[in-house]
Computed example of a mutant assay.
Amino acid sequence: MTATSAPESYPETYYAGAYWGARKESPEDCARRTAGLLELLAECDPFLSHWYKPARSRKDARKHPLMPPDVPTLTGLFQRGVNREPGGPPIEELGFRFSFDNGGAAGDCATMRINGGMDSAAVPNHCVLTVPWRGPNADRVLTVSVLTKAVRAMVLSWDPDWALATSNAYERQYREPVSAPFSLGWITYLSRRIGTVPPLPEPVHVEQVEGRGTLMVLTPERFTVANPEHIALARSVRGLLAQAGLMPAATS
């Protein structure tokens, strides 16, 4: 596959995500983990300290805050998000879904999508945070400091197999193999269950996350597909991780 540059008219957007394999958990288990995540995210940046229940409009949502997080309330929301066939019983192995946001305007909003409690190899459990791409909130959040804390918060809350914060444009240009369980991001975490991270070249920063696994930060400045040095570094590190058996070989 040949990489092509993203159209200049489209802003480079980013997200953070954590992913893990089959793990049977109850709605209350998912609620406890989510409550812990929201508390940790609130420490990352003020923009990530207010969240609201799903509603028909932002005005309605602001009447129903999720902060401070309440486990019984979150448990009920996960119970409502049980996967089922229309009119049929719950499909227990497919777990529970819950999505919400922080009430921001288009381009200046954070959203959270969680699918937990799945005991199936068909689709990984996941927790995905999309972040703003314009305005002063984006200027603060789209930094190594904030996104590293956000990824760590996901790791400490959900104990995933892998997690990352990355550019959507980079993912579009360098698609992973269909069978790949994970890819490389601007910030990447690999659980020690996956294996041991090899030595990586500068300026990559590597740190441990409380005995759970390894977190890698490619660049201290914002990673972007417009910077060829960033792309070259990402492909080099991706290759080293593949050689160490931590990721499947890339196809592009």
Rank of each mutant, 00 (worst) to 15 (best):
Y15I: 01
A234T: 13
G213C: 10
M67S: 00
V141P: 07
W20G: 01
T196W: 00
L74W: 02
L41T: 00
A106V: 14
R80Y: 04
S145A: 11
S252F: 02
L74S: 09
L200A: 14
A165N: 10
V155S: 11
P198I: 10
T130Q: 12
W133N: 04
G107F: 04
Y52Q: 04
A180D: 15
M216E: 07
A232S: 08
D161E: 14
L240D: 05
N83G: 00
S252W: 03
Y19D: 04
T166Q: 08
V209Y: 05
S99K: 01
T130A: 14
M112C: 13
A3D: 05
E92K: 12
R238C: 03
S157M: 06
V237R: 02
P201C: 01
S9L: 09
T224R: 08
P68F: 12
L164D: 02
P248G: 08
A31W: 00
K149W: 00
R32K: 15
L184K: 07
A180H: 06
M112K: 00
A163W: 01
S145E: 15
P248I: 07
R193C: 05
L184C: 05
R192G: 11
A249F: 07
L156Q: 10
F96I: 00
Y170L: 05
Y174H: 15
D45A: 02
V204G: 14
V209C: 10
P27H: 01
P89C: 02
I91G: 00
R56D: 14
R238T: 15
G87F: 08
P177N: 11
T219N: 09
A165K: 03
A18D: 02
E92L: 15
P220A: 14
T148C: 13
R23F: 02
P7Y: 14
P220T: 13
F182D: 13
V178S: 13
F96H: 11
C44N: 01
S9W: 13
D101N: 14
A180F: 09
T214F: 03
R33V: 00
P220C: 13
N102C: 08
S191G: 13
P203H: 09
E43D: 10
P7N: 12
A55P: 05
H64L: 10
H205T: 14
L241N: 02
A55C: 07
L184P: 01
S49G: 15
A242I: 06
S236L: 15
T214A: 06
V237E: 13
G104Q: 05
G17I: 12
G81Y: 07
G36S: 10
S26E: 07
G103T: 03
G107L: 01
A180W: 08
N168E: 08
C109P: 00
W186C: 06
M154L: 15
S57G: 00
D70C: 12
N168W: 11
M216A: 12
L241R: 05
T214K: 01
E221N: 11
P181E: 14
M154K: 10
G213T: 07
G87M: 08
A165F: 07
T143W: 09
G87E: 08
P90I: 12
C127H: 04
P132H: 06
T4F: 08
N102S: 08
S252Q: 04
K149M: 06
A249K: 12
N168F: 12
